[in-house]
Structure formats: C-alpha cells, structure tokens
Design a protein around this nucleic acid. Structure first.
Ligand code: FES
Ligand code: FES
Lengths: 146, 146
DNA sequence: TTGTTAAAAGACATCAATGTCTTTATTAAA
DNA sequence: TTTAATAAAGACATTGATGTCTTTTAACAA
C-alpha cells in the first residue's frame, strides 16, 4: 500500500538472508527469489542496491551469494526507504501540493501531520533485528508470498 | 505522499468549487484548473468521476460548470479514495505480501496496523465540510500549487 | 590456467498513472 | 434555429515502476 514493491522486496530479502544465513552460509539470488516467491531478475537489481548501501554483503563465484555484515541487523527501516528513493514520503503534503509546510498548511495538514510523523518514527526506530524472529518456526512463511 | 495525484486533484477541486460557488455560481473546468494550477484535461477526467459518484454536479453549455449538491459537503474523504481505486490502501500489507491478515501477520504487522487504522479513521470521519474554511482570507491559496 | 558459478550490469518489455490533444454531446443564449 | 460555450468522451503520448532476458565481471575450484 503506502510503499513501493521494491521496498517490500528489499526488506523481506534482508530478513530472509538474516534468518537463513546462519544455517546455510551465503544465499544465492536464485534461492532468495524462490524462497520469497519474487521475480528473480528484478530482485537482482534491488539486491545490488542493498549491497551498494552496505546493508548486505555479497560475493561472486561458486558458493557465493548474499550474506549479512556488521551493520545489517542494526539497519533502521528508514534506510530501505532511502534505497528506493521514497524519502519524501514522510515530508510531502497529503494533497500533493508541495513539500509539507506547517507555515502554509493545507486543509489536511493538521489531521495528517502527527500520523505521518508517527510513521516516520516507526521507520526510524525499528531495526532489522527488531523484525527478526528466528525462533518462530514458520518465520520464512511470514515473509513469503504463498 | 501516500496517495495519488488524482486523489489530491479531486479533493482540492471539490474544496475549490465549494468555496467559490457561493460567489460565482457554477465553476467551469477551465477556471478550476487555473485556480488550482493543475493540468486541465487530466483534471477533466477526475471531475467526470466526481460527478458520476454524485460528489459534485455539473451542467454543460454556456454558463455551465461544476457546482455542489446536497451531498457534497457531507462527503467523507474515504470516498475520494474510492474514486481513484485506492481502496485497499488501508487493507493491504505494508510489505506488499497480500491483503493484511492478522491471523498470518508479517513482521511489520504489529507496528503498522494501528497507525494504518488511524489513517482510515481520519479518512472515514473527516467530511468535506470539515476541511472547508471559507472565512480564511487566503483559503484558495492553501489548496493551490503556487 | 581453465571452467563453472554467481553477482553485476545493461538492454529491452510491460503496465499503470499521468498528461495532452481532439472529437462529440448537451445546453443556454442570441 | 443557429451559434457558442462547456462537459464528456476518446485517442494517443509520456513517464516511472516493475519485470524479463542477455551479457559481462569476478571469484572459486579443479
Ligand atoms: S501542507 Fe498538506 S499535509 Fe502539510
Ligand atoms: S500482514 Fe503485513 S501489515 Fe498486516
């Protein structure tokens, strides 16, 4: 709904790799795409960005794939928003007038501002590790499209 | 941010017509597009839908244009969401997995559900009349792109 | 060194939202 | 009855997000 598919793919992939890499080491793109039931090549582009931003790491070649690094689990969700260039979702006016400006509020401003800020807070304070629940037996199911 | 441009155009147009039609009677498309600084022909399509849904009324011919009817001011904002086919914004999963299902929650569910419901409540309970502030001297400015 | 594996990169295809332009239908006014 | 004004409708263009397919690059293993 509110955010792009790319955002969902990115976050779910990081959760998948984080949960699986303990048992399996590096996870190749193919496996992620299958596990999450997501278009493989498109996911490739998203993964590339994740690696460029340093949220995940990767290695080419045999037995290569994607794996977590020191910052992965501490990554706040807001960084996934940056990744997909949707930064201004938390800044722009609900009526699409301009960047939301409290000094020239649109008629929706007073009703929207607080809720929007609360969303931003969720995305700023929630870390990947907060969403990871490896003990939950069907955890992978909860991030896959079935 | 969260909603389509069409949604913004629709709501702003209704506010514009509501505020202006007292003084000016029927408002032609041309005038709305200029007043709001919005692409004229695209707005035409949005207005057509508003009329079909009964949110506004219209009349063709000389001195024709758009004008409010008995239900205009009592229209809840959620109807503008229907108009643009974005109903499921309040129902779908933040991770874009499927329609959000509390019995099979994704890792974001607990953090997202309440805020999303609050948005829906805002859109269900707020009426056009609640956003109308005709006494405000620069009201039109507050709904136009300048 | 060579071959194989997998990520990275790039070229295109598809689709929905948005935007422009033209044509048609309807109504009021002259 | 004609004309002009205006909404309504329809045909296309543009754009960005998404998706598919192919080629290139890097790394390991034999
Ligand atoms: S000005 Fe519109 S939401 Fe702030
Ligand atoms: S299941 Fe994902 S938000 Fe409810």
């Amino acid at each position: 709904m509110f955010f792009s598919k790319s955002f969902g793919y990115a976050l779910r992939s990081v959760l998948y790799v984080s949960a699986e890499s303990e048992k399996q080491g590096k996870i190749p793109l193919e496996k992620i795409a299958e596990g999450l039931n997501v278009p493989r090549h498109f996911l490739g582009k998203v993964m590339k960005k994740l690696v460029k931003q340093g949220i995940l790491s990767s290695q080419k070649g045999p037995n290569g794939g994607f794996f977590i690094n020191d910052s992965t689990l501490q990554t706040p969700l807001i960084q996934f928003i940056h990744l997909t260039g949707e930064d201004d979702h938390f800044k722009s006016c609900v009526l699409r007038l301009r960047n939301c400006d409290a000094s020239r509020p649109c008629p929706m401003h007073s009703r929207a501002e607080q809720l929007r800020d609360q969303w931003e807070e969720v995305f700023s304070k929630t870390l990947v590790s907060d969403l990871l629940n490896k003990d939950q037996p069907n955890y992978i199911d909860s991030i896959a499209i079935l």
